[in-house]
Design a protein around this nucleic acid. Sequence first.
DNA 1: TAGTTTCGCTACCAAAAGTATCGATACCGA
DNA 2: TCGGTATCGATACTTTTGGTAGCGAAACTA
Lengths: 192, 192
Amino acid sequence: MTQATTSGRPPGRPRSGVTDVVFAATLSTVHELGYARATVDRIAAAAGIAKTTIYRRWPSKGALIVDCLLDAFGPVPLEGASRAELMSSAIRWIAAKIGEPGVGDAFAGVFSDAVSDPALREVLSARLQDPYRLALQDALGEPENRVLFFIDVVVGTLLHRMGMTGEPMDDADVAALVEMVLPRFADGAGHT
Amino acid sequence: MTQATTSGRPPGRPRSGVTDVVFAATLSTVHELGYARATVDRIAAAAGIAKTTIYRRWPSKGALIVDCLLDAFGPVPLEGASRAELMSSAIRWIAAKIGEPGVGDAFAGVFSDAVSDPALREVLSARLQDPYRLALQDALGEPENRVLFFIDVVVGTLLHRMGMTGEPMDDADVAALVEMVLPRFADGAGHT
DNA sequence: TAGTTTCGCTACCAAAAGTATCGATACCGA
DNA sequence: TCGGTATCGATACTTTTGGTAGCGAAACTA
């Protein structure tokens, strides 16, 4: 529950370690009620803590969701013998993550909020998109604009399906997405 | 200002023809302030009418935006000698429409709201997506799931770019999108 | 025990969607 | 010209929700 007591810890009551509980409560609440009805009050109740405690740690609901998604996603598994395998596994990985209960709704939800909130858009871009963009640039040796386009296509397609149907994309269509994207990225062909 | 007075009109004061003014006010307000700050109050003020008048015609803000988008988009220009030309022009058409001031923001905004509002999602799917889906199925002779996938890719990509950057996709990337999509749709190749 | 910080709790504010009411107005038919 | 009817603008209201303020209690250090 409490932090390690090794070195110069600041005085006062230590913060209780509730981030994991809050993340789990966030995803399950979003999964049960949808993004809009997953109010901060309800998330706090599901986590068994007070709403004010959430606002002591995260400056806004959007920032909480972004952190929650960061925790849910983790690093991209950029593995594969060839570029084709690497990109294929990355696409299937993000598709599977978005299909996990609550994750897709939360993702589409923050994305929606970011449309009319430049500050949240900045958070979303810098905290969530940039790490994956940089990892992809590094692994593929592609310029920034190509990787951004790749992300637009893959994530945009998956979120559009999620937003229009409420369900994640099935395996067959994910496979079609892989087959559509790969020829323009897997080898040196194609450019912007 | 008033309706035609030809035949059996219902008694009472006729509705004033303000839909065009409201649509224009909606787009310009969304363009100026963004989706979230384009409240119904402000839209009504921009249109020079009362908020209650808007709610007499549209049951919700989402329905208003969908109608506004329907009016802004109009029918798809499905023309072109070959399938490739037809699809290419359709993609460029929707990209250009989304790039028009206010349209992209409004589109991304309702889409966002629809994520956590099944009723609005139904409106969005039936009123906005289905007409274009059916027209494409008819023009291309493709099954429903293929056309839905096509729409997911094209619209999803364009909206993701709009949502992450706040700016519509530029011509070069739209061209890249066309080149990516065409080979999997323009001929009989590829299937889900 | 004194000092410091976080805790939960309650109350609160502001914004915005949507509703209710009411007098005024515009149209029809007689 | 005069009722009948339905819409108009205006105002006030309810409800929900993100976010803030203040307070006494609890947890930790020295």
